[in-house]
Design a protein around this nucleic acid. Structure first.
Lengths: 203, 203, 203, 203
DNA sequence: CATGAATGAGAATTCATTCAT
DNA sequence: TATGAATGAATTCTCATTCAT
């Protein structure tokens, strides 16, 4: 196996893997997990159904990865903001804005994030994702309370509520077949709600 | 066919319809939408699978109604609170408490409310349900702002955020296979979050 | 549900069940367990593949029953002989003759009896069947030794050897696509072998 | 292509062929024919799946050869005994002992020998193997009768019965997931049965 | 020549829906 | 009108075989 051969090979394999994930993601965004059968994913990725199984051991595993990787990506962005500059209030605002804007741009993530999937394994991945999202906001809440930017409050509950609040406010606009308008006001409204909710002082 | 006969007939038909809905609801509560096959619903309702189709044109239609009627029931309770006594803040608190307590008691409604169902038609019913839930809180927000209990704010967004916040904070506790403890603190935490979020003065 | 309706219904259901078993048995006899897919059984029984699952919970269960019922039938016949008249030697001879003649008549049983099936559950049923066949001959051996018709010998091993001996001697003639000739001499040869093997006095 | 090159080539090819057979044999021994997919054989032989097809035209052909070569080996051992020293009775005893001991040591051969394989071609090879085993004992029987060690008897049938008897008595002990104990008594019991069956004088 | 990714034809199983009785 | 047996299409997954590289 020459170097070049191996290199091209690996690249193609990685390509296929990504193509499958992308196709699966797109199908989930379009019609939910149930719309994304293995056959549909394969067709959309331009390969046979059997080929999927060279890259993923099962349908569950594929969709767990679809969900997890989307959430990973989202969380990495939020964590960069959390660890960035500025006071806690500003960073909380930035997190919500950032997530909301991306959700409105490419609606699939938030949609899948809320969706109840068929498979138990995917279900568990989704719950875990929600928890991980909560952690991000938990760290902000803790810091905000320490620095007296926010009043004392229940941290776990607050973090979950924030996630739920902006998620829900995005659900209708990002739902399949829904119009998306007035984005700026929407985002600003969500941010305002969250900042008030945590007791940020600017309001 | 005499009047009486016809009357009894209709009554029986209505009875069967309710039996089916009840059975379907119970099965969804037990194991989610996927656990409730037509055969299972029929068996649980004490009738044949074919008989279901005398009352509902399809499985989707049945589950749309299961969802809708559950939401109707929930909304009727909330609206009674909204139209009741007390200042807006107290009624908002009562709404959230009431919903949260019932969700923690019988977790299926809230779970199904958040869940993404298999069928597209059910999906749409769920979205509609979320909107209708929002309406309830919208009316409270409008009244609260009018009466100067709450500051001016985006009403649509606020209503959606409230629904999302308490929904999400309940997801983990009500998810299948999850423990439910510290209910009082949980409910109080959610209420506090929501009241802060709408700018209620008590805080 | 009237009596007549119920009666006819049950009869038809029982009929179908038997038709499925018969079709499965025939396919196994023709081409072994692997030749008998659910689709093939269904086609051969004149029904859809899905219908099989109204009568049997799984493919394994179907073939376990095919095997078990064939063995049950065979064992019942042998046990009747064992508990019948005559000295032990005569009854041992009758058992072997009876089994061999039926195997040569309808070869499927002996063939399936020897076959290694794909499914683990069927495999276990097959092993159990062999053991049960052995038991029949064990009881004859015990009685024969007690009554001094046979010398002392290892009973478990002897029983297994008898089963193996006549089974094997029948395999070639009863194998699919094999000629069957000289039946009388074959049966007599097998009987003679077995009687000598247990030390019956006539030889 | 020089002579030497060609020679080495052929040697390597022969090597690969043996590696494949060895790997296939090992996999059959571990988990039966169904456990030995082409991919598994290839991986175990340290080559690609496609490469298998340079040496064997099909999976069936490979497993026919696995079976045949195992039987060849076994028969060679038995024939060496048959053509060795001692009276016929002693050599018959040695044959059965030898086979039984090896079967109990490495149970795969005997098991595969009895097993019904998936492919029809393998099935036929198995039947042929049984016949060839019979031949070995046929020659002993003929010699034994000639030398008056055994009484006159049906040779073909007797040979088949011997094969079946010791095979069957070994099935349970060598079946997957079965305990193997009391080997010495087992082997002695089988030998005794066979010697009595052919009318050897020692008993 | 060897590779191993891809194919494609099945495999078992499930279940909403229909329709003869 | 009610029944529930039967259908048939769809599902996930497996694997011998092929063929571009």
């Amino acid at each position: 196996m020459s170097y070049k051969r191996s290199f091209l090979m690996e690249e193609r394999l990685a390509d296929n893997r990504q193509r499958i994930l992308k196709a699966a993601r797109a199908l989930v965004a379009e019609g939910g997990f149930n719309h994304a059968s293995i056959a549909a994913v394969a067709a959309s990725a331009g390969m046979s159904a059997g080929a999927i199984y060279r890259y993923f051991p099962s349908k569950s595993a594929l969709f767990v990865e679809v969900l997890t990787s989307a959430i990973d990506h989202e969380i990495a962005i939020l964590q960069a903001i959390v660890q960035g500059e500025g006071d806690v209030t500003a960073r909380l605002r930035a997190c919500v804005e950032s997530f909301a804007n991306r959700a409105l741009e490419g609606p699939y993530l938030a949609y899948a994030f809320i969706a109840e999937p068929a498979e138990q394994e995917v279900d568990e991945a989704r719950l875990l994702g929600r928890i991980r999202f909560g952690e991000v906001f938990k760290s902000l809440l803790i810091e905000g309370i320490e620095k007296r930017e926010f009043p004392a409050q229940s941290i776990d509950i607050g973090a979950a509520c924030i996630v739920g609040a902006f998620t829900e406010a995005l659900v209708r606009p990002i739902a399949p077949r829904a119009k998306r308008d007035g984005r700026a006001e929407l985002v600003e409204g969500i941010v305002a709600f969250c900042l008030r909710a945590v007791g940020a002082k600017i309001f």
